[in-house]
């Protein structure tokens, strides 16, 4: 084991920061108000969707808009296995089932469609959301004659800790994938798919597996999110907004670094919450303005801006030091 790798400045500082944040999160229910716990749960949900989206779409360059489909499958798994009349299966088992079913759908869909590229893939994945939504509607309307489904209530702290656990697992998975040969293969696909195939990367397999891994986390988050909604119908479950929000959050935060989408999701979700409650009549206008401005002027996201500023400061300091040397 290369000890220096783990004690180097490059690993130690981000590692320590992550640890402090994790401790702060784990202990949040002990010092934070109940509403803070609920709000952080909501932010964690957005982070999971955004980081899962970036896990696949970031390195491969494939714009997936299927997030709402996988998230919705998780929500429906919850509605089926955790009805308000009494849980059919334990909560954690349903979380895994929701993730696995989403993964299986992603495997099937990915195997069929990941040969599509660019705009075609984006359109197909969004079509998948609409297809599943309408299929759900038809099923509920004509087959089960179900008029909405109630999901059992779960304690807010339990929801928070499960969401946190999914988040931690996702971050670990993302970190490991990015540092593995698998992650390298994904990046090579994003750079040049033909070249990647020529050097021996099984591009279809890499894409399909990553698509399925990202769908797992989206589905698992959907299961636990449904216990907050308490009421589910196809429109609630397969809300297309959940396909677009992660993309915007990722662009907002920046996709170059692992923490970019996290920062984007945190700020975006928090900003949405604050604007919605402080300016209920104008928040859409303000939100739209910030969004357009951010996309126009922050092409690399907030992280890109911070990196740019950091480089500027270093250059300025170097320039200052050089001037001082010249004077002495």
């Amino acid at each position: 084991m290369n000890i220096t790798r783990f004690t180097s400045k490059g690993f130690l500082i981000p590692g320590l920061i992550s640890l402090v944040i994790l401790i702060a999160l784990v202990t949040l229910p002990f010092y934070g108000s109940l509403y803070n716990v609920i709000m952080v749960t909501s932010i964690l949900m957005y982070i999971i969707l955004t980081v899962s989206w970036v896990l696949f779409s970031g390195p491969t360059g494939y714009m997936s808009l299927a997030t709402a489909a996988f998230f919705g499958i998780g929500i429906y798994a919850s509605a089926i296995f955790l009805p308000n009349t009494g849980a059919i299966l334990p909560l954690l088992v349903v979380v895994v089932i929701g993730g696995l079913v989403s993964s299986l759908v992603a495997l099937g869909v990915g195997a069929l469609t990941l040969r599509l590229r660019g705009i075609y893939f984006a359109i197909f994945t969004f079509g998948l959301v609409v297809l599943i939504l309408e299929l759900g509607n038809w099923w509920e309307h004509t087959v089960t004659h179900t008029r909405g489904r109630f999901v059992m209530l779960v304690d807010n702290d339990v929801i928070f800790y499960i969401m946190l656990a999914i988040f931690v697992l996702l971050m670990l998975t993302t970190y490991l994938i990015r540092r593995s040969k698998f992650g390298l293969a994904m990046r090579s696909i994003g750079e040049n798919e033909e070249a990647a195939a020529h050097i021996g990367v099984n591009v279809t397999m890499v894409k399909v597996i990553t698509f399925a891994i990202s769908a797992f986390f989206m589905g698992a988050a959907g299961v636990i999110w449904a216990t907050k909604l308490t009421y589910v119908d196809p429109y609630v479950a397969f809300n297309p907004l959940f396909s677009f929000m992660p993309v915007l959050m990722a662009i907002f935060g920046g996709m170059g670094q692992i923490y970019g989408p996290v920062i984007g999701a945190v700020i975006f979700a928090y900003l949405q919450e604050k604007l919605q409650t402080e300016f209920p009549y104008y928040y859409m206008l303000i939100f739209g303005f910030v969004l357009v401005a951010a996309i126009l002027y922050l092409p690399d996201g907030l992280i890109g801006l911070i990196q740019k500023l950091w480089r500027l400061i270093r250059r300025w300091r170097k320039g200052g030091a050089a001037k001082q040397d010249a004077n002495t």
Binding site: S33, L34, Y35, I38, M39, S42, W225, K228, L229, T230, Y231, V236, N239, L241, E273, Q276, T277, P280, Y281, Y283, M284
Partner: peptide, 22 residues
């Protein structure tokens, strides 16, 4: 205190909890 749920069930649930708890 009136918040806009933007005709979204998830937002409405969150805002209802905010009204009650915060």
């Amino acid at each position: 205190i009136i918040y806009d749920d933007a005709t979204d069930v998830g937002t409405m649930v969150r805002l209802t909890e905010k009204l009650i708890l915060e």
